[in-house]
Nucleic acid binder design. Structure first.
Lengths: 152, 152
DNA sequence: TTTCATGTAACGTTATATGTTGCATATCTG
DNA sequence: CAGATATGCAACATATAACGTTACATGAAA
């Protein structure tokens, strides 16, 4: 099954934007993510509708963050993407008349629902600000490594 | 994202087989599942390799259960299918040099891993025998309803 | 030997994420 | 106002994977 990477992609964009004041054109962001500007606009549209980012047309236009990063969770971002399917598996048919299928669906649905709930819960515990902190920590580590490599 | 229904499908087949001694031809099973005989053979191949079912060619041939239903879990069946992807989402790129991407991936991987572990755990708690019991319970309820509808 | 059944490869179909092009619209600059 | 820059969006192209279908080989029973 082909895996949906929009959540990963949009988080990448948001974190890059958090490092500089902006604005950022779709083309700039697309280059950083090695994709197409239209793809950027597509995945950012939901975020804009929910007020997490703003876009402006024309000269000096582009995308800007418009939210408190410590108040937006990964789950919020997921929702802004339209809450796409989380699980790669599903039942063969919904609303089955077959009792065998009902028994199978009931068991699978239970397991699927639990897994989805846990995933959403975990995503809800992580804010964009926390991701930013992690990024800066990694940046510090890399700098230290570089200094060591140069004999400092 | 299109959802994989092979697990749901193969469970459906196994439970149907558990209701009668068999053997069952691929064509019979395919009709019950409203699909193609070749699809049946395809999803049953992994189960045969692990010894959960046996197949015989020629006259009077077909598929038979070859395991203790109380010892095979939904997770075993999932594994027999080749352990396909559980989650519909994934990271944009693996092995990223970008520190932003590393931070994003670390957070998502954590959540994804937890959800997958829970799902596998839940599937491991349910045996085929338990599904069979649930089916028979539903069958009983339906019979009762039918009797009530006829004024009993 | 004929018939029935699985085993498997090859190809077609469908759905969805992703990539691309084209053009309309809005905004800034000169 | 004219031109350049940027988003908004529709339409179409591409890649991939599940699912469906056809064709033929192999093996077993009547």
């Amino acid at each position: 099954m082909k895996r949906d990477s929009r959540l990963s992609g949009v988080l990448h964009v948001l974190l890059h934007m958090a490092q500089q004041p902006g604005p950022f054109t779709s083309e700039t962001l697309a280059k950083a993510m090695d994709t197409n500007p239209v793809v950027i606009r597509r995945i950012m549209a939901g975020l804009r509708d929910l007020g997490y980012v703003r876009s402006e047309k024309g000269h000096g236009g582009g995308w800007r963050l418009a939210c408190d990063l410590s108040k937006v969770t990964l789950r919020d971002v997921y929702t802004a993407l339209g809450s796409p399917a989380l699980l790669a598996m599903g039942n063969r048919t919904e609303a089955p008349g077959c009792l065998v299928e009902q028994a199978v669906n009931a068991a699978l649905d239970q397991a699927f629902h639990d897994a989805e709930a846990l995933l959403l819960s975990r995503l809800g515990e992580v804010t964009l600000a926390m991701l930013g902190d992690d990024f800066r920590k990694r940046l510090g580590s890399r700098k230290l490594q570089g200094m060591r490599a140069h004999g400092a």
